[in-house]
Design a protein around this nucleic acid. Structure first.
Length: 428
RNA sequence: GGGUCGGUGCCCGAGUGGUUAAUGGGGGCGGACUGUAAAUCCGCUGGCUCUGCCUACGUUGGUUCAAAUCCAACCCGGCCCA
């Protein structure tokens, strides 16, 4: 490639771990030689950091509004981790204060406000899923290496703002600027209500950057407005404005809409190996390469061209990163046996999630059993599933929804199957 | 605050006194097909250990043998005016 004769040109290139999968970066990645300004060019800022031996402070904010982290979120954490591994400081902001307003981004309606207790409980779960107390080799973030991670809650500084401070904050932008934001513009245009407090959200998120003196903020492309707001506010507070690093929004399992719990197209970080693998190996062909780029470190060029092989390689690698190679390979093998037709014999061998019969009251009718064991959401749904011919017990189609089981003995050890990909081994 | 229009099942959206969990579409789930995919076709889509019983059309109360459908008050939202 290019020669690197001087430190100046060195800075003109970003490392691959940083540029992989980027959707947007501003103000600029690198700059012409005449403009090696560490405030304008990220490459220059990185070089400066190295020179001064001062790691960059890389901000990522999360609002603990739900309880499960899924792969869609994980692409941001993966990038944050890459910064950690390169020696920088990840500043993870738990939006315990902002979560109670609700980020209007991408929302077609005002979000429900959460109680402080709910938010705190969610925050705890998030940290555990991100790897708190775990071996960094297996977890998403590095919680153990000193100096690599700061976890901050934004109530720390936001709860302390008094009215004059809030008014000053509001004074930094205009209604026109707010309405320029796509979500607001859409909602305003379509007559969907926008509460005034929602205008505060971008300002508060921006203020977080001021509070922690961020050098760089990570976000999805939908965060562009909010991240840019951080730059404005930092300038307002006489700080060096942060760089913005935007990553694409991961499409969900449907391949069209973004991955989101409410759309039911997610793969959870906490999913067991088998369901993680089997969901992933059937993502639409069109998004397999996105998954590979954003969720793995694999070289795309080195992979087989066949879409089916790519799906498998991607599913295996993503599962491996969470559960280890052995578990991932087992999941791959099990997926092949379970779904591949020879369910009867295969199911007995394969490793499937277990479901306890403890909560079942016997005698139990088939439709009730499905619901009681948690495989169906309701007994009515179970009844329909059985009548629709989608339920198998130990490989044999269960046809009678009213079939009665007298006790756990005749069920334990058997595998209950709903559709092609939901399996439960019944245990006491 | 005034005027006006509106609030139906996961979502959109019919339905304006009388079988009926309530047309249709989307989404979801299941089946066939397939590459465990896409496309296509078919079925299901409130709850309950269910041949029946509950609960449902913003909330509460009322009229009626009978209401999602009529009346009243209230709550929430859009638009116009202030």
């Amino acid at each position: 490639m290019v020669e690197h004769p001087s430190p100046d040109t060195n800075a003109a290139e970003l490392p691959a771990w940083l540029s992989r999968g980027l959707a947007d970066l501003f103000p600029a990645a690198s700059a012409p030689e005449s403009l090696q300004d560490p405030d304008q060019a990220l490459a220059a800022r990185l070089a400066e950091a190295e020179q001064l031996g001062r790691p960059l402070r890389v901000k990522l904010g999360i609002d603990p509004t739900g309880s499960d982290i899924h792969l869609g979120h994980s692409i941001l954490f993966r990038k944050l981790r890459a910064f950690q591994d390169a020696g920088h400081t990840a500043v993870l902001i738990i939006g315990d204060f902002t979560a109670r307003i609700g980020d209007p981004t991408g929302k077609s309606a005002t979000r429900v406000q959460l109680s402080a207790a709910e938010v705190e409980a969610n925050a705890e779960t998030y940290l555990l899923q991100l790897g708190l107390g775990q071996d960094p080799a297996r977890s998403l973030l590095d919680f153990t290496t000193p100096g690599r991670l700061e976890v901050r809650r934004n109530s720390e500084w936001l709860a302390a703002l008094d009215l004059p401070a809030v008014i000053e904050l509001l004074g930094t932008s205009t209604v026109g600027q707010m309405l320029a934001k796509e979500d607001f513009a859409k909602r305003y245009g379509s007559g969907t209500p926008i509460s005034l407090h929602e205008f505060l959200y971008p300002l508060l998120q921006g203020y977080d950057s001021v509070a922690i003196r961020a050098d760089l903020e990570l976000g999805g492309t939908d965060q562009k407005f909010n991240v840019a707001m951080g730059r404005d506010l930092q300038r307002h507070h006489k700080q060096r404005p942060q760089f913005a690093l935007l990553l694409p929004i991961l499409p969900g399992l449907d391949g069209v809409q973004k991955m989101s719990k409410s759309l039911g197209n997610t793969v959870g970080l906490a999913d067991d190996p088998l369901s993680m693998y089997s969901k992933l190996e059937k993502v639409p062909d069109a998004v397999v390469n996105d998954y590979l780029t954003l969720l793995t470190d694999l070289e795309l060029a080195a992979l087989p061209a066949s879409p089916r092989e790519r799906q498998k390689a991607m599913a295996l690698e993503v599962t491996r990163a969470r559960h280890g190679l052995a578990a991932a390979q087992a999941a791959q093998a099990d997926a092949a046996t379970l779904v591949g037709g020879a369910a009867g014999a295969g199911a007995a061998e394969a490793e499937v999630p277990e479901a306890s019969l403890a909560a079942v009251n016997f005698p139990a009718k088939a439709f009730y059993l499905l619901a009681a064991v948690g495989i169906c959401a309701s007994s009515s749904e179970a009844r329909r599933a059985i009548q629709g011919g989608g339920v198998k017990l130990d490989g044999e189609k269960l046809v009678d929804a009213n079939r009665e089981f007298s006790g756990p003995d005749e069920l334990q050890g058997l595998v209950l199957q709903l559709g092609k990909k939901t399996f439960r081994r019944l245990v006491p």
